[in-house]
Amino acid sequence: MWPIDAQRILSIPLSQYDMTDFIAWSYTKNGMFSVRSAYSVEWNYQYESRLKYSNGMGRSIPNPIWCQIWKLACPAKVKKIIWRTLHGTLPCRVTLANRHMKVSPSCPTCSRGLEDTKHMLFLCSKAKEVWKRLGMDVIIDKACEIDLAGEAILEYLLLLPDQDLSIMGYQNVREMIAISAWYLLWERRKLVHKELT
Rank of each mutant, 00 (worst) to 15 (best):
W182G: 04
I12K: 12
R188C: 01
K102D: 10
H193Q: 09
Y53W: 12
P13L: 11
D141C: 14
L165T: 06
T109Y: 06
R50A: 07
A127D: 04
A127V: 06
D162H: 05
S54C: 08
L185G: 13
E175I: 05
Y47F: 15
K52A: 13
D141P: 00
V192I: 14
K79S: 00
L114H: 11
A38S: 15
E151L: 03
E175G: 07
R8N: 10
T89M: 06
E129Q: 11
L184E: 02
G113M: 07
N30M: 04
K79E: 00
W131P: 05
M176N: 03
P62T: 12
K142Y: 14
P161F: 06
T20K: 06
P64G: 09
I177D: 06
C144Y: 02
W70S: 01
K102I: 13
E187N: 02
I81S: 13
E145A: 14
C124N: 01
K194A: 14
L191T: 13
T20D: 14
I69A: 02
P3W: 07
N30T: 04
P105E: 13
I65D: 03
W83V: 01
V35H: 09
N30K: 12
L184S: 08
Q16E: 15
C67W: 08
T197G: 02
G135V: 09
K118I: 01
C92V: 13
D21C: 04
R8F: 05
